[in-house]
Design a protein around this nucleic acid. Sequence first.
DNA 1: CAGTGGTCTAGACCACCAT
DNA 2: TGGTGGTCTAGACCACTGA
Lengths: 249, 249
Amino acid sequence: MGTTQLESVPEPKYWHLKTVLSDALDSEFAVGEILPNERELAARFGVARATLRQALEQLELEGRLQRRRGVGTTVAPPRMGVAVADAEHAWPGTAADAWQPVDSTEEAPPAALARLLGTEPGQVVHVVRRARKTRGQPVAAELLYVPADSVPGLAPLDAPAGPSRARAVLRELQQLRLEGQERAVELGSARADDAKQLDRLPGAPVLLVTTRYFADGRTAAVAVATYRADTCRLTFGESDGAGVRLLAG
Amino acid sequence: MGTTQLESVPEPKYWHLKTVLSDALDSEFAVGEILPNERELAARFGVARATLRQALEQLELEGRLQRRRGVGTTVAPPRMGVAVADAEHAWPGTAADAWQPVDSTEEAPPAALARLLGTEPGQVVHVVRRARKTRGQPVAAELLYVPADSVPGLAPLDAPAGPSRARAVLRELQQLRLEGQERAVELGSARADDAKQLDRLPGAPVLLVTTRYFADGRTAAVAVATYRADTCRLTFGESDGAGVRLLAG
DNA sequence: CAGTGGTCTAGACCACCAT
DNA sequence: TGGTGGTCTAGACCACTGA
């Protein structure tokens, strides 16, 4: 690795480094294997640690590596295929889906969500928190916003919070006839609480899935799900078809 | 901003900075406005430039900022809602969709794609490159892989490459009866060629949308679309419904 | 406790853009 | 040509993990 190659278009070092490391991962490392630590890798490639870290960050973003403080950097398994849009027209919480209710509170949603819900700014709604695991690993955290109008049968529970309250809200929601739903996916960074639930650091890259549920000609609920971008590939389409397996890896 | 606050859980500086800047963006800046340059911002907040940059990177990842070398850092407009899964069951290139054919070549796809396509490794297929623009801005670059089997009517053209060849492949593909499709979304980083087409730097975060098209009981084509993660929100569902507008903002 | 990745600093130079 | 963001360095200290 001579340093004085006359490159007419000088590729950044970290970019080249990423390529080299990526090839090495393909050919010389097995999934789960621990890489040499950052200081040694940097020395080995003759770059500053910050530069080496820039390359590792890219690879982590692409789901090739997994880094844990105090432990080390390991080779990540291929991303898990996670089905979004499970049954095409079903309320959340029906059947034994992948989600697990965590708790439920009553809060005023952020302004942007109040607009989606069609509620007054500052108006409190039910907020159901759910967690999703796949193969034992937490993959997503969700906040489901349900205006009181959408669950008229819900008793003004004395049950304060917790999973049972969450289940009660979901049960009531399922009384409505679902007319349709709408979904959007975008890149975000994990808020502190979500990060904790996902076993990541705050600011970790996540895929934000916003789902709007329609009933009675209006928005009955909105879910904002936060998926780990490093370990997940979101899949859409006929989710139980045999073909999905191939794409879902 | 005294430096010696006894925080039991010391928040990283860049994280706190991000919050402060985010609030400032909401209240004191208009879309398109230019922020002070990085050296001045760093001085103003009493941190190193690298730390300030870490905060800016986060905000850019969330689509709040846009940075251009030689120009400056500007406040980004809200993300554009981009409809994926346009008409639920349609081949690419039908009607006047948002995509524009760029060219078409014959190449051997990467191993992972050959597996999806069900072709032999090393087997050449048609590769159609398309570009997508919204409101004048490039938002996505796509490579559509079409095995020769899927377009039996395609004449062994002397037309070498270019948009007309791409259109010919798409036209032939549309002769098949589309039986279904499957989609997956994941986070990636822009390859050099895609980055150029998207007017971004290599390694920029992108949303990778992989679509498998089924016909005749097998995979007839696979598309890999690379969307700018900073400016796009991918929308799914009844894409022309009035309701989408709200979510698409 | 030693070793890991995460944060932070104060510089330097480079590539790009508008003027 | 001057100013911007992008890359890179060589250090330092901190937070966390596991033995």
